[in-house]
C-alpha cells in the first residue's frame, strides 16, 4: 500500500498532487502561526463592561454613533468623568487611577478596536440597528465580559449568512444585501 503510494507519487500527476498537498499543509501551518503571532494591541485598561452594563447603562449611552451612522464611537474621557466624578471611590480605587490620571493630565486612552473589519469593507451601524438588530447579536453578551471580546470571526461568510437569512424571500432585498457594492467600494 505504502509502496503503491510512492510509485504513484513519483508519477507526473502524483508529483503535482504531492506538491499541492505540501503547499496546503505548509500554508495551513503558516496561517496558524500567523494567527498566533498577531496579537492585537493590549487594551489600556481592563474596562469592566459587565459592571457597567450590570448597572443598567445602555450601550448607546457610551456608543451613541451606532444609531446614527457608520461608527458606534468610543466614549471620551470626559464622558467617563461625567459619572465618575460623582463616585467617591474614583479618588481612591487603584483600578480607577489610570482614568483619574488621564483626566488630570488631559491625556486619553488609546483603545485597541475589537470588532473590526478590513479597510476594504465599509460597515455602517445605522441600518443594522434600524433593521432591529440588538448590539448583542453581533458583539455578544457584555454582561459576561470585562474588556470587550469578539464572540465570532467577523468575516464575509458570517455577514452574508445573516444577510441571506434576513432577506428571506424578498428578491429585491436579497439583491441589495448580497451585492458586492453594498460593502466593498
Amino acid at each position: 500500500m505504502i509502496k503503491r503510494f510512492f510509485v504513484w507519487a513519483i508519477s507526473p500527476m502524483g508529483r503535482i498532487a504531492v506538491v499541492i498537498a505540501g503547499m496546503f499543509v505548509f500554508s495551513l501551518a503558516a496561517f496558524g502561526i500567523y494567527q498566533t503571532q498577531q496579537n492585537p494591541n493590549p487594551q489600556p485598561i481592563q474596562f469592566p463592561h459587565n459592571l457597567h452594563v450590570g448597572l443598567g447603562i445602555q450601550c448607546l449611552y457610551c456608543h451613541p454613533g451606532a444609531s446614527k451612522g457608520p461608527s458606534a464611537g468610543l466614549p471620551t474621557i470626559s464622558k467617563c468623568w461625567g459619572c465618575h466624578q460623582q463616585i467617591a471611590k474614583t479618588q481612591t480605587s487603584p483600578k480607577l487611577k489610570p482614568m483619574l490620571d488621564a483626566m488630570n493630565n488631559g491625556t486619553n486612552f488609546v483603545w485597541a478596536p475589537v470588532a473590526k473589519v478590513p479597510e476594504f469593507v465599509h460597515f455602517n451601524h445605522r441600518p443594522h440597528i434600524a433593521a432591529g438588530l440588538n448590539c448583542e447579536n453581533c458583539h455578544g453578551d457584555m454582561t459576561k465580559v470585562t474588556i470587550a471580546e469578539n464572540p465570532q470571526v467577523m468575516n464575509m461568510g458570517w455577514c452574508l449568512n445573516c444577510h441571506r437569512e434576513r432577506a428571506g424571500d424578498d428578491e429585491a432585498k436579497l439583491i441589495k444585501l448580497t451585492d458586492c457594492g453594498t460593502c466593498h467600494y
Partner: peptide
C-alpha cells in the same frame, strides 16, 4: 469586476 444588480453599475471589488 462585476455588475451590481442593486445599483446597476460596474463594480470593482478591490479585495478580489
Amino acid at each position: 469586476t462585476v455588475h451590481s444588480q442593486a445599483e446597476q453599475i460596474n463594480l470593482q471589488v478591490y479585495n478580489r
